[in-house]
């Protein structure tokens, strides 16, 4: 019954002629609306409701059982406490650095790995494999490799007479080191996305450019690069979303330390949650939400608009 009702209201604007409409309305739809139901229930209960609820609970002092409305106090705390505010800046740095590095390195690697070289398939596999290894596994491994005294990296540097820094123990360096490991793990994905883009460029373009006397550099700059815009959009958006929400790697490598020097929003949310400050934790979540939305939505719009203009 409800199905038929739905069918009428739903189908009406799409159908063109009146007889078709009445016929469809009487029949049960081939594409019933209740197909949305199972997904909708799970998604609504565990994603949509908590997201909306977070806007309210961010304004409360909250112990899971009862909540007291305190207005914007959590947010004032958040922006007044230097270590909390710093996590916001750290998040921005982390996301920008990792996504920028993935774009540049990914593109260079992709151009290299789609040129005529031996062992190409093998090289692609090796570059990509870290993407599939869990962040915890990578994090634990690198926190050992980056040990200031016994770590393999500093031992290797010592062979060349360089005294390696305390990658994860130096407050100025810790966040950068984690970001570096993030790039190590994620560059394979960016590379593959770019390779897929390069493969899709018709060979005629390169041949035409060659006939016109373009050298390899010109071909890269004037043919490959402009046509890589959709791939670049994908890489930037994906790695920014991942970078802004990043938690696993930071938590396993530094736990936000030393001090609060490598804390990001996601790790602050977890720390406040552990400490029982649920309202403040949720406020951190809302800040992260606003940050992600404020960066990704305009960027998405901007990058896609440029495409249309061309």
């Amino acid at each position: 019954m409800t199905d038929t009702l739905h069918a009428r209201t739903q189908e009406a604007p799409a159908s063109i002629d009146a007889p078709d409409r009445t016929r469809k309305a009487r029949k049960r739809s081939t594409y019933p609306m209740w197909f949305y139901a199972p997904a909708g229930v799970i998604y609504g209960a565990l994603f949509v409701i908590p997201t909306f609820a977070s806007f309210y609970f961010a304004l409360t002092r909250w112990t899971i059982f009862d909540s007291e409305f305190i207005g914007l106090e959590n947010f004032t705390t958040f922006f007044a406490e230097p270590y909390l505010f710093e996590s916001l800046l750290n998040t921005l740095f982390y996301a920008t650095f990792t996504s920028g590095a993935k774009v540049v390195l990914g593109l260079l690697l992709a151009v290299f790995l789609s040129s005529q070289i031996i062992a190409r398939g093998y090289l692609r596999s090796v570059v990509f494999f870290p993407v599939l290894v869990s962040a915890v596994g990578v994090g634990v491994t690198f926190s050992v490799l980056m040990d200031p005294f016994d770590g393999l990296i500093n031992k290797a540097l010592a062979v060349f007479g360089v005294e390696g820094p305390g990658w994860l123990t130096d407050p100025d360096l810790a966040l950068f080191s984690v970001a570096f490991v993030d790039v190590w793990r994620g560059v394979g994905l960016a590379t593959l996305i770019y390779i897929a883009g390069i493969v899709a460029i018709p060979q005629e373009y390169f041949e035409a450019a060659k006939v016109d006397g373009a050298n390899a550099w010109h071909r890269f700059w004037h043919v490959t690069l402009p046509l890589m815009r959709p791939a670049t959009t994908t890489v930037i958006i994906l790695s920014l979303i991942g970078g802004l929400r990043s938690f696993d790697l930071i938590w396993t490598m530094t736990k936000g330390g030393p001090g609060f020097s490598s804390d990001v929003l996601a790790s602050v949310v977890y720390k406040q949650y552990q400490a029982g400050f649920y309202g403040l934790s949720t406020a951190g979540n809302v800040v992260l939400f606003v940050l992600v939305a404020a960066i990704i939505i305009p960027l998405f719009w901007f990058l896609n608009r440029k495409e249309v203009d061309q």
Partner: peptide, 22 residues
């Protein structure tokens, strides 16, 4: 909603609150 699902970071404690309710 689908795009939001790709972008929006899940709100942790409210999710726990809903899960406890269920």
């Amino acid at each position: 909603l689908v795009l939001a699902g790709l972008i929006v970071p899940p709100a942790v404690v409210p999710t726990i609150w809903v899960m406890q309710g269920l």
